[in-house]
């Protein structure tokens, strides 16, 4: 009987502690839940607004091509409710890992802006794709992108569709271009499906 008491008391007190802790966690969860949701919504809004100017965005939708993962996207509207564009999230394999990109495309199918969400490229080299000078090249493009390695041709001469890769970071540059190409393709598919 003594032995049982020796096991029972510690087990009970441990159980009590577990219950109290679980209760505390449930309480904190309930308290912080709405703040967390609000913060998440704000983060998404910031992300979307950084690539396209819009008054309102739809909820996250998904477009499935039947192959692979579906593509998440958001419709963008002006204050009258007209659809002025779309924001797509695409990803591909970069040099050091997954590269995830947010692309804003207007109603005419032209790129309005880019934002890199996830980057695992070589710091100082491939990571340079996350610079304004590189990303701004994509603005205004509406057709398939071709990567140029020659340096002084293409985008720097204002030819839409040709992208200057960053020297020494061909793979990373190609990954970004590939993401944007996919975004343009999917956007076109969504448009076709909507009509």
């Amino acid at each position: 009987m003594q032995k049982l008491k020796g096991i029972l008391l510690p087990t009970l007190s441990l159980l009590m502690i577990c219950l109290v802790c679980a209760g505390l966690l449930a309480f904190t969860n309930g308290f912080t839940k709405e703040y967390i949701e609000k913060a998440e919504k704000e983060q998404i809004l910031n992300m979307l607004s950084s690539v396209i100017e819009s008054d309102r965005f739809s909820e996250q939708k998904e477009y499935s091509t039947g192959r692979g993962e579906p593509y998440p996207y958001y419709d963008a509207f002006d204050k009258d409710g007209n659809r002025i564009g779309r924001v797509l999230i695409t990803s591909t394999n970069g040099y050091g890992g997954i590269l995830r990109l947010v692309t804003g495309i207007d109603a005419e199918g032209k790129v309005t802006g880019l934002k890199i969400l996830e980057l695992h490229e070589t710091p100082g080299l491939g990571s340079k794709v996350n610079s304004e000078s590189f990303l701004n090249q994509f603005k205004g493009i509406s057709r398939e992108l071709i990567l140029s390695k020659a340096g002084n041709t293409g985008a720097s001469l204002g030819q839409v569709g040709l992208i200057d890769a960053i020297s020494g970071a061909t793979v990373s540059s190609g990954a970004v271009s590939s993401c944007v190409n996919t975004a343009l393709e999917v956007n076109a598919l969504i448009e076709k499906g909507a009509n």
């Binding site: 970069g94 040099y95 050091g96 793979v171």
Partner: peptide
Amino acid sequence: FTGIAQGLGLA
């Protein structure tokens, strides 16, 4: 080893 996954064509 950074570029290995990409170089080997792994997903």
